[in-house]
Each structure stands twice: as structure tokens, then as C-alpha cells.
Lab assay of single mutants.
Amino acid sequence: TETYTFDSEDQAEEFAQRAQKKGYTVEKRKENGKFKVRVE
């Protein structure tokens, strides 16, 4: 499980979609103005 942090929602969304296409489970959340994407 890895967590990635992005400054913009667009970046987080793009990353999450790519990860989902590769078959990963993706969980997105906003925390302290940053966008976190957890991938497993």
C-alpha cells in the first residue's frame, strides 16, 4: 500500500484513474488542503 500526495485535485484524479486502469484499488481523500491517493 502506497499513499501519494498531490497539490491539485486534477493531478490526484488523473493518477487515480491510471492506477485503477492497472487494476489497483484506489482511495482518494482530501486532507489539509492536499489530495491524497492511497493505492493497493
Score class of each variant (00 low, 15 high):
14 E>Q: 09
22 K>G: 11
24 Y>T: 04
29 R>Y: 15
7 D>H: 05
34 K>F: 10
3 T>G: 04
15 F>A: 03
26 V>Q: 02
36 K>Y: 15
33 G>P: 01
36 K>P: 02
40 E>F: 14
10 D>N: 08
32 N>M: 06
9 E>D: 08
28 K>F: 14
19 A>K: 07
5 T>R: 03
17 Q>P: 00
32 N>K: 07
10 D>S: 10
26 V>A: 07
32 N>C: 11
28 K>S: 11
20 Q>I: 14
1 T>S: 13
27 E>V: 12
23 G>M: 02
9 E>L: 08
36 K>D: 05
11 Q>M: 11
38 R>A: 08
3 T>W: 15
33 G>N: 07
20 Q>Y: 08
16 A>C: 10
2 E>A: 13
37 V>G: 00
32 N>L: 06
32 N>I: 02
21 K>L: 12
7 D>S: 07
21 K>I: 07
3 T>R: 03
13 E>V: 05
38 R>Q: 10
37 V>A: 00
22 K>Q: 13
1 T>A: 13
36 K>R: 08
29 R>S: 14
36 K>Q: 14
10 D>T: 09
36 K>E: 12
27 E>T: 13
12 A>Q: 04
5 T>Q: 07
28 K>I: 15
9 E>V: 05
20 Q>S: 11
24 Y>K: 08
6 F>K: 00
39 V>W: 03
38 R>V: 14
39 V>M: 04
33 G>R: 02
9 E>P: 05
36 K>T: 14
22 K>I: 08
26 V>R: 00
29 R>P: 01
38 R>T: 14
10 D>L: 09
14 E>W: 07
32 N>W: 03
17 Q>A: 12
24 Y>V: 07
12 A>V: 02
12 A>I: 00
8 S>D: 12
17 Q>K: 12
23 G>R: 02
3 T>N: 05
35 F>V: 06
16 A>W: 04
25 T>P: 07
35 F>M: 04
32 N>A: 07
37 V>W: 00
2 E>D: 12
21 K>G: 08
10 D>H: 09
39 V>Q: 01
28 K>D: 02
9 E>W: 10
1 T>K: 09
7 D>K: 04
21 K>R: 10
27 E>K: 06
39 V>D: 01
18 R>P: 01
36 K>G: 04
33 G>Q: 04
24 Y>G: 05
39 V>G: 00
27 E>P: 00
37 V>L: 03
29 R>L: 15
27 E>Q: 10
29 R>Q: 10
39 V>K: 01
28 K>L: 15
13 E>N: 12
30 K>Q: 12
21 K>F: 06
7 D>N: 07
29 R>M: 14
25 T>Y: 13
27 E>M: 08
19 A>R: 04
30 K>N: 11
25 T>K: 13
2 E>T: 14
27 E>H: 13
4 Y>V: 04
2 E>Q: 14
15 F>G: 01
26 V>I: 08
22 K>H: 13
6 F>M: 01
15 F>W: 04
31 E>D: 07
1 T>Q: 10
10 D>K: 09
15 F>L: 03
22 K>L: 15
21 K>V: 06
26 V>G: 02
40 E>W: 14
4 Y>S: 02
1 T>C: 14
5 T>A: 07
24 Y>Q: 08
26 V>Y: 03
7 D>W: 06
28 K>N: 06
25 T>F: 13
38 R>N: 08
